[in-house]
């Protein structure tokens, strides 16, 4: 019983993080039509900037988290202008671009800080107790921040003008441009949002688990899995897809062998891709 509860909590936390990262990845995919494989590296950089500011420079941890989110988010502007925009219509070149970015970022961290695994100190140390379950505060925090941010992002996309413009560009970039929407500005906004959420979720994950220069690779694959599961262009879909993936990843290693669980997850993703390429809720990109 206790195990099931713990796994449920873990599933919720994992889902929140997966959804945040997948939303950023999915935004870039639907608005710019690019598979940004460097998203995991941005996530890693976010965690390391928070680490550098709080542990190495001794700033308050919340302040350093904020600075990290702002810095990495702002660097999204540069990424969009110099790295993504020239390759929007060339998916193969975009993949090479992303590889170059990943190599530069990961090597930069490895050279300056070394490849060792580090831990970011907890934002709120301590343990949260409710009845028979006890969870460390970090996980509660990660889930809470994730949920609040998700609500805010959903509001942004569904209710505000810029969100509506994003949806329009995602549906048909040319049509949106004809209506007077500045597609480059929308793409830049989407990239900034994606980078900022990636930095935030990276920092949160670094407190729960640990951090190393290659922590982004795994989460990137999970984000792609979530986006494929849910389909492109559906926020509600990403929510459901993230929950499914989070719970699969929390329960399968406990219930059965971890490597068999991995195979099952991959089989589910492959099956969805082959039977219904547009995912459970989305539409087909091309």
């Amino acid at each position: 019983m206790n195990m099931i509860l713990t796994s449920t909590v873990n599933g919720l936390v994992l889902s929140a993080i997966y959804i945040l990262v997948a939303l950023g990845f999915g935004l870039q995919l639907s608005i710019m039509g690019i598979f940004n494989f460097a998203h995991g590296a941005v996530y890693m950089i976010g965690a390391y900037v928070t680490y550098g500011l709080s542990v190495a420079l001794g700033l308050n941890q919340w302040v350093s988290l904020l600075i990290s989110v702002i810095l990495v988010g702002a660097s999204g502007l540069l990424l969009e202008k110099f790295c993504f925009r020239p390759f929007q219509s060339k998916p193969t070149h975009m993949i090479v671009m992303a590889i170059a970015l990943i190599m530069i970022l990961e090597t930069a961290v490895e050279v300056t800080l070394g490849g060792v695994t580090r831990a970011l100190p907890a934002f709120v140390p301590g343990i949260f107790k409710a009845g028979s379950i006890s969870v460390d505060n970090e996980r509660v925090l990660a889930f809470a921040i994730g949920a609040v941010l998700l609500a805010a992002l959903t509001f942004l996309i569904q209710k505000t003008k810029i969100g509506q413009q994003m949806l329009a560009v995602a549906q048909d970039a040319e049509g949106a441009a004809l209506q007077g929407i500045d597609t480059h500005r929308i793409a830049a906004t989407a990239t900034v949002i994606a980078c900022a959420t990636a930095a935030l979720s990276g920092s949160l994950m670094a407190t729960i688990f640990s951090m190393n220069p290659f922590m982004g690779d795994n989460i990137l694959l999970k984000a792609i899995q979530v986006v494929i599961l849910s389909g492109i262009g559906s926020i509600g879909g990403v929510l459901v897809g993230g929950l499914i993936m989070g719970f699969l990843n929390a329960f399968l290693p406990v219930l059965i062998n971890a490597s068999v669980g991995e195979v099952i997850t991959i089989l589910i993703v492959l099956g969805i891709l082959l039977i219904r390429p547009k995912g459970l809720f989305g539409y087909e990109l091309f």
């Binding site: 598979f35 998916p91 792609i224 899995q225 494929i228 991959i266 993703v269 492959l270 891709l273 082959l274 039977i275 390429p277 087909e284 990109l285 091309f286």
Partner: peptide
């Protein structure tokens, strides 16, 4: 069954 970028994704997960 899948083409283009979707084939690429299938190959990734394969």
């Amino acid at each position: 069954r899948v083409r283009g970028i979707y084939f690429t994704m299938v190959s990734l997960f394969f």
